[in-house]
């Protein structure tokens, strides 16, 4: 059985760290280094439960680096190092005792390019469950995830077909189903629509709006309109003179896109950034 977040005993609360129940994740004085290069610096932000947070900013501002901190995906990068904290439900994700595999089960990720395994549709969704030693009804769990990702009706009659036969948009929804199967609490999306056509993009956006009732979503996007359409809050990052990304401002999405507080945000979202 996949362990739910309530049952976990490995993620211990951080001493002296308070986090409101409203927030599921928080970054505290977070800096990320790749060797001697600091990719992001001193990030402080809170991610509200059951909300969509969009991370926007120019290329190289550290959006994806920041995103990957939320499920310790940066651990896989050689010479990467994190300073500060990522607090998840009151626990420090980077504490030595924290199991990074467990973190990734609770904080799932969907990548820029759909990356289904060269297996059947069914096995793609079942994969994470099998790895975690799932003992329940696999059929039901796969169907549930495919329904949640709005793909079930399109694939229910060909679950044993190769996932690679699906269209790009369907493959991306399959990857979302695969992430949902292990019952995460948070889903990280790194430009999930950048390889999709407009119709598939809108299908993913509809899906994001449905998923937020149950999950918390953080999405990196270069598409301003997409950020405006799907997110509740938006964080704008910039590249500093030291080439490290930093948070310029974070606010309600409608505020950011109609009347941002910082000139830099204004310049970026209106396309006058140079």
């Amino acid at each position: 059985m996949v362990q739910s977040q309530q049952e976990s005993e490995t993620l211990e609360p951080v001493a002296g760290q308070s986090q409101s129940d409203e927030n599921v994740l928080a970054a505290r004085n977070l800096s990320v280094w790749y060797g001697n290069f600091r990719a992001v610096r001193d990030i402080n932000l809170d991610v509200k439960r059951n909300s969509v947070l969009a991370l926007i900013g120019p290329s190289g501002c550290g959006k994806s680096t920041l995103l990957r901190c939320f499920n310790r995906m940066n651990d896989l990068v050689l010479n990467s190092r994190v300073e500060g904290q990522i607090i998840y439900n009151g626990t420090d994700l980077y504490a030595p005792s924290t199991d990074s595999t467990e973190v990734r089960a609770r904080v799932g990720m969907v990548f820029q390019k759909p990356n289904p395994f060269p297996k059947t549709i069914f096995e793609n969704v079942a994969f994470g469950l099998r790895v975690n030693g799932f003992k329940g009804n696999l059929q039901e769990a796969v169907e549930r995830s495919l329904r949640q990702s709005a793909l079930w009706e399109e694939v229910k009659d060909r679950l044993n077909s190769s996932a690679l036969e699906l269209s790009g948009g369907q493959q991306q929804r399959l990857c979302i189903a695969r992430a949902l199967a292990v019952e995460p609490e948070v889903i990280l999306m790194d430009e999930p629509c950048s390889a999709l056509d407009p119709v598939a993009t809108l299908a993913i956006e509809d899906l994001i709006r449905q998923l937020v009732a149950k999950y918390t979503i953080i999405i990196v996007t270069h598409n301003m309109q997409q950020a405006a359409r799907v997110s509740h809050e938006t964080a704008f990052l910039m590249v500093g003179e030291d080439r490290a990304g930093y948070l310029v401002e974070m606010d309600a999405t409608d505020k950011i896109f109609t009347n941002p507080s910082h000139e830099q945000t204004e310049a970026y979202i209106t396309g006058r950034f140079s």
Binding site: F257, T258, N259, T265, E266, T270
Partner: peptide, 9 residues
């Protein structure tokens, strides 16, 4: 032009 912020206003 998909205006935002000041342009939109």
């Amino acid at each position: 032009q998909q205006p935002l912020a000041r342009d939109l206003r």
